[in-house]
């Protein structure tokens, strides 16, 4: 899991390998892009959640642990996601009181997905 959400690191770090990114939403996408280019497969969509890139500072993306044969599909998805991210007015400010809510919204999407049996069998 590539994330900048401290709650994901805290709650899921013991169960799954977590790469923690010190940075913003876009920085997570860039890290994911680099890993996809090395052959890691995307498990979750980088723009999951319909919460726009300028409405939350947090992002978590699940990728395969192992490196696979290179395909064009995943690099396209992550590149398009970065392009989509860059379209939004970035000057969003997040009051301290909202950060916990946004962390919860982010982790909940991943949590629900990983809890499902059919999503556990891939590496």
């Amino acid at each position: 899991m590539v994330t900048n959400n401290p709650l994901v690191k805290e709650r899921m770090g013991k169960t799954y390998p977590v790469i923690f990114v010190e940075g913003g939403y876009r920085d997570v996408l860039i890290k994911v892009r680099d890993m996809v280019h090395l052959g890691h497969r995307l498990f979750t969509h980088p723009l999951m959640g319909s919460i726009k890139p300028n409405q939350t500072p947090y992002r978590t993306v699940c990728l395969s642990k192992n490196v696979h044969e290179f395909s064009m599909e995943d690099p396209q998805i992550i590149s398009n996601s970065i392009v989509a991210c860059d379209k939004f007015v970035p000057a969003q400010y997040f009051p301290q009181s909202m950060l916990k809510d946004l962390q919860t919204a982010d982790i909940s999407l991943i949590w629900g997905t990983m809890a499902r049996e059919q999503n556990r069998n891939m590496n």
């Binding site: 995307l42 498990f43 979750t44 969509h45 999951m48 959640g49 998805i77 999407l109 997905t113 499902r116 059919q118 999503n119 891939m122």
Partner: peptide
Amino acid sequence: ENVYLADK
């Protein structure tokens, strides 16, 4: 419209 690519 699930978030997991395999679901899609």
